[in-house]
Design a protein around this nucleic acid. Structure first.
Length: 471
DNA sequence: TGAAATGTTGGGGCG
DNA sequence: ACGCCCCAACATTTC
């Protein structure tokens, strides 16, 4: 009765899981293992919000596995070698990751396991197309999204999940599992010391069932209005699937499969899945872009350094309602609507002229869907320094964006309640409201709600002047 | 997946 | 009737 170790990382699902399928194809029993080794992902070890999510995702997976998920602390290679010795496993299977540090670690582990006589193999659970399988006519990686996406569509999106045989009676036996020494999930210290997660818990159902429910609900309702609905933060007609996809509680093939009946309506949504693929493509082929701009002109860009303003941005106290609303939604729920992400990122990198890396770091720590590839692409896109990025001079005006996409002010009123009584006309720009309107709304600027950190018009001009020095 | 500045057009008021 | 001005509405250019 041969045994295989299934090394789970960010593929926390039992369906559409090629590593699990490989394990079951070649071995009678499977021992599922999660190894906690955050230092190995340095300098991008998981942030606080993703650790919170991971805790609950692991708890859910352990429940699906009838309690037989073995949890240990790293280092990964030593832990795997020890487990092979203790369990008598003949092989280790996992699904691939694509961050530079993870690739280096996993390659070394595969080499070392094989050298020690243990079979080791990996699969693709996370992407529709792995980065090295797609290239342009010159045999080079893509740097522009549209041709990249066209090529994926012309190849054809994979629309059937990886088949996995039933696992139930092929888990490692309870007796064998009991002999292995595992850590309790709580010992990993993934949950916050101070309980800041109440609203997160109220917002998210961090489980496979939650992922399936979210996908079903999105496809049953919002996907039909996605093209426009996705622009309205208060309507929130978006999928919210990103954290599930990040941890692999849901696989991209499963998403594509579920969209099949909605092909036309889902086309715009699938395009966003394409951006996720593109992000991984870029990070794999240009691994420095997690930290440095793709566009080398930005190496000399005169970013400012202002901790007080960075902190005001982080806390949702810039004095610009839509920006503050987004930052507070992020802090409270671990997530921000994508249009608002672009707006707060534009505000940080252009109006405040602070480096996009500072914003990326904050998102990394606070987003439940923090993903190195998507986060790096998103920030470089908005900052104008990435591949196929918005040009630097494209500066969002958060007042106009609010008037366009939060017309009735529902989003701002929800997250910035202290100015909720202001009429629509002044809600997005309280600093221009006449005294009597402020008084009637019970708002004292600088007291109840901050005055703006910078003047939008002047700071826009300052950003354009800065750009002129390096372009 | 911008916004602002600048240019053009056409209707209406008016002398 | 006509030229002139104003200005909103739209289009184009620039950042």
């Amino acid at each position: 009765m041969s045994l295989a170790i299934l090394w789970l990382r960010r593929d926390l699902r039992l369906s559409d899981n090629p590593a699990l399928a490989k394990a079951l194809a070649a071995h009678a029993r499977v021992l599922p293992v999660y190894i906690h080794a955050p230092d190995e992902e340095a300098p991008w070890q998981p942030g606080a919000a993703t650790r919170w999510w991971l805790h609950h995702a692991l708890a859910d997976l352990a429940a699906q596995l009838d309690g037989r998920l073995l949890i240990r602390r790293g280092p990964s290679l030593e832990t795997l070698c020890a487990l092979v010795a203790e369990s008598g496993a003949a092989a280790v299977y996992w699904n691939r990751l694509y961050e530079p540090a993870a690739i280096a670690r996993d390659s070394e582990i595969k080499r070392a396991l094989r050298a020690a006589g243990t079979d080791a193999d990996s699969g693709n659970a996370a992407l529709l197309f792995e980065p090295w399988t797609v290239h342009n006519r010159q045999d080079r990686p893509f740097r522009v999204f549209t041709p990249f996406w066209k090529q994926l569509l012309s190849i054809g999106l994979p629309h059937s999940p990886h088949a996995v045989p039933a696992l139930a009676d092929r888990l490692v036996t309870r007796a064998a599992f009991a002999r292995l020494d595992g850590a309790a999930l709580d010992e990993l210290g993934l949950l916050p010391q101070i309980p800041w997660d109440a609203q997160m818990a109220a917002t998210w159902q961090v489980s496979r069932a939650g992922a399936e429910a979210r996908l079903d609900e999105f496809l049953a309702t919002d996907v039909r209005h996605y093209a426009h609905g996705r622009d309205v933060p208060a309507a929130d007609q978006v999928s919210r699937l990103s954290p599930y996809l990040h941890f692999g509680q849901l696989g991209p093939r499963e998403v594509v499969a579920a969209c099949r009946g909605h092909r036309q309506a889902a086309a715009d949504f699938l395009r966003e899945l394409g951006w996720r693929e593109f992000a991984h493509h870029l990070l794999y082929h240009f691994p420095h872009t997690a930290d440095a701009a793709m566009d080398a002109r930005f190496d000399g860009f005169p970013w400012r350094d202002d901790d007080a303003q960075l902190q005001a941005w982080q806390r949702g106290a810039t004095g610009v309602p839509l920006v503050d609303a987004g930052m507070r939604q992020l802090w409270a729920t671990g997530w921000m609507h994508n249009r608002v992400r672009m707006i707060v990122a534009s505000y940080l990198t252009k109006n405040l002229l602070l480096p996009w890396q500072a914003g990326a770091r904050w998102f990394w720590d606070t987003l439940v869907d923090a993903d190195l590839a998507s986060n790096s692409l998103g920030w470089q896109w908005t900052a104008g320094c990435g591949a196929d990025a918005a040009p630097y001079f494209r500066v969002f005006n958060p007042v106009l964006q609010g008037q366009k996409f939060d017309k009735a002010g529902a989003y701002v009123r929800r997250w910035v309640p202290e100015i909720a009584a202001l009429p629509d006309n002044w809600l997005q720009r309280p600093w221009e409201a006449p005294d009597d309107a402020l008084a009637a709304a019970g708002v004292c600027l600088g007291d109840d709600y901050p005055r703006p950190l910078v003047d939008l018009k002047a700071s826009r001009q300052r950003a354009l002047d800065a750009w002129a020095t390096v372009k």
